[in-house]
Amino acid sequence: MKQLVVLSGKGGTGKTSITAALSHLASQDHESLSIVLADADVDAANLEFVSAVKKIKQEDFWGGKIAEIDPDACSGCGLCAVTCRFEAILEEAGVYQVDPIACEGCAACYYMCPSSAISMIDQLAGEWYRSDSRFGPFFHAALRPAQENSGKLVTLIKQQARLLAMDEEYDLVLVDGTPGIGCPVISAISGADLALIVTEPSKAGIHDLQRIIETTDHFGIPSIVCINKMDLSVDGTREIEDFCAKQGIEIVGRIPFDVDVTRAMMNGEPITTYAEGSVASHALRDIWVKINGILKDLVNE
């Protein structure tokens, strides 16, 4: 079983649309693979909208805890406010309260309170789902807005996907990643065999491509690159090619800007099923053949 994660650094380069197309191509190809899908973008999860998902199981996700002060037990000494480094204890006219949004759940106040007036309360931070998608079992989640611990939820989703893939001998776990390079991205790439980085030939896209490549290198994950919306800038595309050549990173394909990609999204489908003959679909089929070859060449776990 192999794990492929789709990343980008910059948001909006087309991770989810490309993941959906790859899930279709991987499972429908003449030498088709059995796949498990995971949406690791838990605070803006969109893969379900193009994967014809039927939810079959839903579970609560309990994130961290936050502090709560019992006003009856509180003596008003203010030690909690002095201890807290996150400005999460608010005082008004001698009455102390916790700002639940600022609280990081460190429990420093809980341990310091001489009146035992503080409790740590578990937070329902979201839900996660096991669904059936058109192309295989699908694990995804919805983090409640403004909640913490997205990295922990990403790890949970991926664990569930891997467990099923191992138990039932699936060939591939395909993970739709999140933008950026921080905690949810690090959770998304951990344990991956290969990272597909979707970039675009804009100055911002190239800048963030460099940061995500440094990140995958840092964690020792081999990377390949695909250039989306390649006709936005000829110079930009050349710049990406030069950068990747220097880094020894293979470019597995170039996808032209194609309004059919948005139409497919509006229709709730991957571009490769919605418009088989579109320029983007042609490019994606070539990309999948290359990725499949690279996955085969990776040493088996």
Partner: peptide
């Protein structure tokens, strides 16, 4: 702000 709806976004807009 960064994309998303979790803690870095909350810190930015608060």
């Amino acid at each position: 702000a960064p994309p998303g709806t979790s803690c870095p976004v909350v810190e930015t807009i608060s």
